[in-house]
Write a protein that binds this DNA or RNA. Sequence first.
DNA 1: CGAAATTAGTTCGTATTATGAACCATTGTC
DNA 2: GACAATGGTTCATAATACGAACTAATTTCG
Lengths: 149, 149
Amino acid sequence: MVTTKEPVLRFTEALVRLAHLVQQVFAEVSREHDLTPQQAQLLCLLIDGPVGMTELTRALHLEKSSLTGLVDRAEKRGLVTRTRDSRDRRACRIELTPDGARIGVLAHEEVAQRLDALAGELPEGHRELLASTIGGILTAHARPPAPGR
Amino acid sequence: MVTTKEPVLRFTEALVRLAHLVQQVFAEVSREHDLTPQQAQLLCLLIDGPVGMTELTRALHLEKSSLTGLVDRAEKRGLVTRTRDSRDRRACRIELTPDGARIGVLAHEEVAQRLDALAGELPEGHRELLASTIGGILTAHARPPAPGR
DNA sequence: CGAAATTAGTTCGTATTATGAACCATTGTC
DNA sequence: GACAATGGTTCATAATACGAACTAATTTCG
């Protein structure tokens, strides 16, 4: 009496496939705006205001040198600018140009729209549940073994 | 008694972050086996048996030429081999070497393990629900606007 | 104070990834 | 048998990502 119907998509399989799908959506949207996915992601991260390089490396999970290159190219395309931090003269803050802001916001909206559309088919309430469940996973991962604090 | 600790993370935000997390896990595991994430993914896809190039491009969402390069490098590292298809002499099938199979299975298991661990914190039953919900999204996306058929 | 360690970014060399256009060879189709 | 379609490769190019070595500003502390 084995349940051999090949049912319900194994959990990890589901996660991996979903991640892949999200990436695809991102890639599509990026391409439509003539951006690479990495550039698009960078712009999205800067929408809420300028961010320093070090913080960006954490957000993007990139090495410093990789980020330098990414920002270089984005700057060359007129999407962002480097402004020296007044308090700490080593640091700099990456800021969107008007052009970068326009494209960034647009891309962000479109990604959100398409992902929402994908979830449109879901039964009532599943979307919220999915979001909160994912939220749980994310916070769980944010601090792996942190008993204190 | 609403748990208003945080505005529940918008849906799309959750998806994007989750995708990012999955990628990270993949990257970690890959690195530990001295593979690039792309190579690891290739190996994982071949675990169930040889696959043709064209089918691989669909699975990986890569252009033909990109895939050629990826397979080239994997072959050079002794992870896969190209075997000419006997039926169609244009086509070839990519197959794991013993070495590639070993590493591929290992990597696959480890990814699964870590993703499972992430979900370990979830309330009872949420994992299944999450999996099936994602399954719904995936199949919904598989055939976007297909009224007939 | 001033030397030493830290931190923030950049530069450089290298491997990989990804694409599109042009191409070759084999299969199908009339 | 000509001709289109299919399966892959080659080539040139741009972007991505890393680590090691480096510069400059900032802390730390003896």
